[in-house]
């Protein structure tokens, strides 16, 4: 149980970082942290007590493996995270080029 709570803590840390920090790069880091917390949580949900890694090999029988599906799914989610992060960083660099600052309070011109 405690390990799920640690996951939640990590996620909350990331969300706190997104909500409270003023530096664009720190916001992006916050997003990455909370994303990895979710991925970690997905892997932990699939864990089985005393389970071994779900790899077939010719010499060992299929006994007590952990659930393999979330691992495949999390890999996809990591790839998506990579794309989002790259896009966010590219936008952040462009913003730096226009405004010469990473501080969001000095960038804020639109009032949505």
């Amino acid at each position: 149980m405690i390990i799920y709570l640690l996951c939640l803590l990590l996620f909350s840390l990331g969300i706190y970082c997104v909500l409270r920090k003023r530096n664009i790069i720190k916001i992006i880091v916050g997003i990455i942290i909370s994303e990895y917390a979710v991925n970690l949580f997905f892997i932990l949900v699939a864990y089985r007590k005393g389970g071994r890694s779900p790899i077939f090999s010719p010499d060992s029988a299929i006994l007590n493996m952990v659930d393999a599906l979330p691992q495949a799914v999390v890999l996809t989610s990591i790839v998506i995270g990579l794309a989002t992060t790259a896009l966010l960083i590219a936008i952040a660099m462009r913003i730096y080029g226009k405004h010469r600052t990473f501080d969001i309070t000095r960038i804020n011109e639109l009032n949505g």
């Binding site: 969300i15 997104v18 664009i24 916001i27 997003i31 909370s34 994303e35 989002t84 896009l87 966010l88 936008i91 952040a92 462009r94 913003i95 226009k98 405004h99 960038i107 804020n108 011109e109 639109l110 949505g112």
Partner: peptide
Amino acid sequence: RHELEAAFKYAVMGTV
């Protein structure tokens, strides 16, 4: 300037 700011805001909120 405005496009980038809006896109950043949208991207952060959309990702969350």
